[in-house]
Simulated assay, not measured.
Amino acid sequence: MLAVIGAVLFALALILDLADATLGETVTAGTIVTAGLLCVALHLAGIGSRVGSSGGGWRLRSRR
């Protein structure tokens, strides 16, 4: 989910950069890119994954 949010933020930053527009003085294309990178980094770190710690998952099943 965080990777999708990051992709949306990157797309928004690209549109703002191409249009030379800003969303105020503090929110610029660079700020949005940084937020997108944060979301992608959290996704790669495993934060916000769908499988919970008690969900079992395929790794916890024993082979027979």
Rank of each mutant, 00 (worst) to 15 (best):
R59K: 03
F10Q: 12
L37G: 15
A45F: 06
V51C: 04
L42E: 11
V51A: 14
A13W: 02
F10E: 15
R61W: 07
V4M: 04
I5R: 09
L44P: 00
I47Y: 12
G56D: 06
R61D: 13
L14R: 06
S62F: 01
A35K: 01
T34E: 10
L2Y: 12
L14E: 15
G46E: 04
A41C: 04
G24Y: 02
R63G: 10
V8F: 11
I5K: 11
A11I: 01
L12N: 08
A41Y: 03
R61P: 02
V27T: 08
L18A: 09
V4G: 08
I47T: 09
L37Q: 14
G55A: 11
A7W: 02
H43A: 13
S49C: 00
T34C: 00
G24D: 07
R59I: 00
G24P: 03
V51E: 15
L2F: 12
C39S: 15
T26E: 13
L16G: 09
L23M: 09
L14F: 08
R59H: 13
G6K: 01
R64I: 00
R64H: 10
L12W: 02
L12Q: 10
R64F: 08
L18T: 04
A11E: 13
I47K: 06
A21F: 10
F10A: 06
A13Y: 04
S49Q: 05
H43G: 09
I15Y: 14
R59F: 08
S54M: 04
R64P: 14
T34W: 07
L42M: 14
L16R: 04
D17H: 07
W58E: 14
I5N: 09
G36D: 06
L42V: 02
R61S: 12
V8E: 14
E25Y: 01
L37R: 02
L37M: 11
A13P: 06
T22M: 00
A45M: 07
H43N: 11
A19M: 02
L14S: 15
S54E: 15
R61E: 14
I5E: 13
R50V: 07
G48S: 04
G6L: 00
L38Q: 12
I15S: 13
V33W: 07
F10L: 11
A35E: 03
